[in-house]
């Protein structure tokens, strides 16, 4: 349960600035000039002594569960460019009544069809009308189990864990991936997520390692792109999967590696529905980051964002998972 303050609904009017004014009060008979009536720890409106008198800001709190928040946040998001694929994954089974048989459970008798059978038989036998139901007339509704398939998708979550990724950068990258995973699992039943971490070398890690482990070393982004390409080619055939790749880094890549990165991104774009690159702008200033190289990529399925602080996480999520048809959410 989280409490979200909702800034309400103020009724603006021309009024005096009460904090710059004197106010009248009444003491117990012994008040003196200089007596302190109250003090404030922080200059927050409405916290003065006249909590009821001095105007403050109206806040209302709404109590919502984290899932409700997620639901609201994810409403407008979806995996873009999702295509029907051959190898569909079983998402769920549904029961549908769509067959009529001569045998079945009494409670499932199809009265209309049974009566039609009676009328038909009587008409054939020369005495038309509705009379005399025989066991052969009975018809039963019967169900079938229909499997529901969903196009399957795989999302490659790639994160830079090199030494230059400080606590802040890692926090931002993980926040993004946390919400991304939450989003994918809320909305899709059969999306596979693969976690890849890299510094100068890349490797596949478990979800837990991905979100908790820090590493050090230099940065060679091409390593993780290479690994991603290998994985796709070995494990996720294009005709069966919608593939998405997202990479977060601080952009402090080995300069000599940048050219290679661009070529590999082009390779990825041939295989992926969307390639997303998020760059965290830390307190340091880099003159040539990976992002500035990526500006040369013009493919509309490549999306790059830069995040300055944690408020940028949601906008990043939105620009990656833009819903092409918001109504169809």
């Amino acid at each position: 349960m989280v409490k979200i303050p909702i800034r309400s609904l103020e009724q603006y009017r021309f009024r005096y600035d009460s904090r710059k004014q004197k106010h009248a009060g009444q003491g117990d008979g012994k008040s003196q000039v200089g007596d302190v009536l109250g003090s404030e720890q922080q200059p927050a409106p409405g916290k003065g002594p006249g909590a009821g008198e001095l105007p403050g800001q109206d806040y209302y709190e709404a109590e919502v569960t984290i899932d409700e928040v997620a639901q609201l946040l994810f409403d407008d998001l979806s995996l873009p460019n999702l295509e029907e694929k051959k190898n569909k994954k079983l998402a769920s089974e549904t029961v549908e009544f769509r067959d009529v048989r001569k045998h079945g459970i009494q409670s499932n008798i199809d009265r209309k069809r049974t009566i039609l059978e009676v009328i038909k038989r009587n008409a054939l036998s020369g005495s038309p009308g509705l009379h005399g139901i025989t066991p052969e007339d009975l018809r039963y509704k019967t169900w079938e189990i229909t499997p529901k398939f969903e196009s399957s998708a795989v999302v490659l979550a790639m994160m830079d864990t090199s030494g230059s990724m400080g606590p802040f950068e890692k926090y931002i990258a993980r926040s993004f991936f946390f919400w991304m995973v939450k989003f994918l699992r809320t909305k899709y039943e059969s999306v596979e997520i693969v976690f890849l971490a890299h510094h100068t070398e890349a490797r596949e890690v478990t979800e837990e390692e991905f979100f908790t482990k820090g590493e050090s070393g230099g940065t060679r982004c091409s390593s993780v792109y290479k690994l991603a390409l290998e994985l796709i080619d070995n494990r996720y055939p294009l005709q069966d999967y919608n593939i998405y790749a997202f990479h977060f880094s601080d952009g402090d890549n080995l300069t000599s590696d940048n050219e290679l990165c661009i070529r590999l991104i082009d390779q990825l774009l041939l295989r992926c529905k969307l390639v997303g690159y998020g760059e965290i702008e830390g307190p340091y200033y880099y003159t040539s980051t990976l992002n500035s190289y990526f500006k040369r990529i013009t493919n509309s399925r490549f999306v790059s964002v830069s995040i300055r602080d944690k408020s940028g996480v949601y906008p990043a999520l939105k620009s990656f998972f833009k819903n092409p048809d918001p109504k169809g959410g």
Binding site: K22, H23, A24, G25, S31, V33, G34, V36, S39, P49
Partner: peptide, 16 residues
């Protein structure tokens, strides 16, 4: 025992 008070710094003080 009426008085006037106002904010001085972080404190609300009787001034009059």
């Amino acid at each position: 025992d009426l008085y006037l008070y106002r904010r001085i710094g972080n404190e609300w003080k009787i001034v009059e």
